[in-house]
C-alpha cells in the first residue's frame, strides 16, 4: 500500500524537465542544476535497471525497462545529443518496448509455471556481476581520460549527423537498411502460421 509513491516517481516529468534543461547546454563548467539533474536521472536509470533484475513479473520487467530507456534518453539529452535522445524514445520506448510487451502477451499462457532461477544461479550471477562492476569502476576511476574539448556540438547536430550518415558512414547506413529489410522478411516468415489462411487479417500484426 505504501509503495504507491514509488511508482508515482515522475519519470516522464523528469524527462520533460531535463529536456528543458538540456538543449541550452553551453559549457561543461560547474553547473549545479545540471549535476542535480544528472544524479536524479542516473538514479532513475540504475534504479529501473535494478528493478528489471529484481522483478519476477515479466510485464513489470518491461516497465522497468521503460524507466531505463527513458533515463538513457534523458542522459542523451543531458549530453546535448537531443536527436539521439528522441530517436531512443521513438525506436526503443515507442517501438521495441511495445514489441516486447506484445511478445509477452503472445507467450504468456504459462499458468502455474514459475520461471524462477535457482538460488545457486542467482548467487553466482550476483558474484560475477558484482565483481565485474567493482572491477570496471576501479579501472574507470584510475584511467586518466583525455580532457573534454570545450563546448561540444550542441547546435546543428542533426544536420551534421545526417551529413556523416550519407558520406563517411554511407556503407554501414546502407547495410543497416538491408539488414532491416532482412529482419522484416525474417520476422514475418518466422511468425507466420504454418499454413497461411485466407482470413481477413484479423490478428494483431507486428
Amino acid at each position: 500500500m505504501t509503495r504507491g509513491w514509488l511508482y508515482r516517481l515522475p519519470l516522464p516529468a523528469l524527462l520533460a524537465a531535463s529536456a528543458l534543461a538540456a538543449d541550452g547546454a553551453a559549457a561543461p563548467a560547474a553547473d549545479p542544476g545540471k549535476a542535480v539533474a544528472f544524479y536524479l536521472v542516473a538514479a532513475v536509470t540504475v534504479g529501473s535497471a535494478l528493478g528489471c533484475a529484481i522483478a519476477t513479473n515479466i510485464v513489470r520487467m518491461a516497465m522497468c525497462l521503460l524507466g531505463t530507456l527513458g533515463g538513457v534518453a534523458l542522459l542523451y539529452f543531458l549530453m546535448s545529443a537531443t536527436f539521439l535522445g528522441v530517436i531512443q524514445l521513438i525506436v526503443y520506448a515507442g517501438g521495441t518496448l511495445i514489441v516486447i510487451v506484445f511478445g509477452v502477451m503472445l507467450t504468456s499462457r504459462a499458468y502455474g509455471v514459475k520461471l524462477r532461477p535457482r538460488p545457486v544461479e542467482v548467487l553466482a550471477a550476483l558474484v560475477v556481476c558484482g565483481a565485474l562492476l567493482v572491477g570496471l569502476v576501479a579501472v574507470l576511476l584510475r584511467t586518466d581520460w583525455p580532457a573534454a574539448p570545450a563546448g561540444g556540438a550542441a547546435e546543428g547536430t542533426v544536420a551534421a549527423l545526417g551529413g556523416s550518415l550519407l558520406s563517411v558512414y554511407l556503407v554501414p547506413f546502407e547495410l543497416a537498411s538491408v539488414l532491416l529489410l532482412a529482419v522484416m522478411i525474417g520476422a514475418a516468415y518466422l511468425a507466420q502460421p504454418a499454413l497461411p489462411t485466407a482470413g481477413d487479417g484479423a490478428g494483431p500484426e507486428e
Partner: peptide, 14 residues
Amino acid sequence: LEVGLIFIFAMLGV
C-alpha cells in the same frame, strides 16, 4: 528544441 518535430512524434508514441 532543435528536434521539436520528432520529439512530439516520440511523445505520441510513448
